Computed example of a mutant assay.
Amino acid sequence: MVGYFIDLVLVAIFVIGITAFNGVITNSIGEKLFGRKEKSKFVDMSDRMTANFNRVGGKGIYRKKTY
């Protein structure tokens, strides 16, 4: 019975993991092939929105690098 639950959990993890990975890969391929000039549309809009915000916290070593 324990073996059944271990198998069930492993299959569930693999199915969820493969589905999530497939979504990320498909999205990145779609952006590269069909994005054209709008590849960084959301990053640019975010930069425009936060242009006048005050910088807070540390030296920025944990800041995410985008494009």
Rank of each mutant, 00 (worst) to 15 (best):
N27L: 15
V15E: 12
V9Q: 07
Y4M: 08
Y62T: 10
I6Q: 07
V56S: 08
S28Q: 14
K41S: 02
K65P: 00
G35T: 03
R48M: 01
T19C: 04
I6F: 04
T19H: 05
E38R: 02
G3D: 00
V24K: 09
G58L: 06
G60T: 02
I16T: 14
G35V: 01
A20Y: 11
A12P: 04
K64M: 05
V56D: 07
V15C: 14
F21C: 05
G17C: 04
N27Y: 14
D7L: 10
A51G: 07
G35D: 04
I18K: 09
D7N: 07
V2G: 15
A20D: 11
R48G: 00
S28A: 07
V15S: 14
L10T: 15
I13M: 10
I29L: 12
L8M: 01
R48K: 13
I29F: 13
F34E: 01
T66A: 15
K39C: 08
N27C: 12
V15L: 14
I13Q: 04
Y67Q: 07
E31R: 11
I29W: 09
F5K: 04
R36F: 10
N27W: 14
N52Y: 06
M1Q: 04
I16S: 10
M49G: 05
G58A: 05
G58S: 05
G35E: 00
K64I: 08
I25T: 03
G30T: 15
G30S: 15
T26P: 00
V11A: 14
I6V: 15
N22Q: 12
K37I: 01
Y62D: 07
Y4T: 09
S40L: 01
D7A: 10
A12H: 08
I13R: 01
N52W: 07
K39I: 10
N54G: 09
K64E: 05
E38Q: 11
F5R: 02
R48V: 04
K32Q: 15
G23M: 15
V15G: 11
K37L: 06
D47R: 13
I13F: 03
I25F: 14
F34G: 02
F14Q: 09
G58W: 03
R55K: 15
G35A: 04
K64N: 09
S28Y: 09
A20L: 14
S28V: 10
V2N: 10
S40D: 01
G17H: 01
G57Y: 11
K65N: 09
K65S: 09
N52I: 01
V15P: 02
K37G: 11
D7W: 05
V11H: 11
E31K: 11
K59E: 06
N27R: 15
Y67N: 07
A20M: 12
I29A: 06
G30D: 15
T50R: 10
F53T: 13
T66N: 14
I29M: 09
K59Y: 05
R36L: 05
T50N: 13
F21L: 12
S28H: 13
I25Y: 00
F34W: 12
N52C: 05
G58T: 02
G23R: 10
V24Q: 01
I25L: 14
T66C: 12
L8K: 06
R36S: 13
R36H: 14
I18P: 00
I6R: 07
T50I: 11
